[in-house]
């Protein structure tokens, strides 16, 4: 039982770090890039020149986070309905539990 618990703990920790720490970091990268794109007041050192091209990276980061949140909601809905998310088709679909 202890071995079983430990293997569970490792899995939750790995998933937690990937999604729970990884996604906020991607979000932070998005905020960082948008500040870089804006320049001036948005930067800690005022008067920094804006770099508009960074906006693309910033928006891409936020899009990744939004997508992950949508997956999270789909996951909650799926488990509530007694189904599970399947990635068998390369994109997520609801499937019956095995």
């Amino acid at each position: 039982m202890i071995a079983l618990a430990l293997s569970g703990i490792w899995k939750v920790l790995a998933a937690g770090l990937l999604f729970g720490a990884g996604l906020p970091t991607v979000f932070a990268l998005g905020v960082r890039s948008l500040a870089l794109a804006e320049g001036g007041e948005a930067e800690a050192t005022p008067g920094t020149r804006p770099h508009p091209s960074a906006r693309v990276l910033g928006i891409a980061c936020l899009a990744v986070v939004l997508l992950a949140v949508a997956l999270g909601i789909a996951f909650i809905v799926a488990s509530g309905l007694g189904k599970e998310l399947s990635f068998g088709h390369g994109y997520p679909t609801f499937a019956d539990k095995e």
Binding site: T25, A28, L29, V31, R32, L34, A35, E38, E41, A42, E43, A44, T45, P46
Partner: peptide, 9 residues
């Protein structure tokens, strides 16, 4: 990651 960003932003 956000160390150089203004706090308000």
């Amino acid at each position: 990651v956000t160390s150089g960003v203004a706090e308000r932003f």
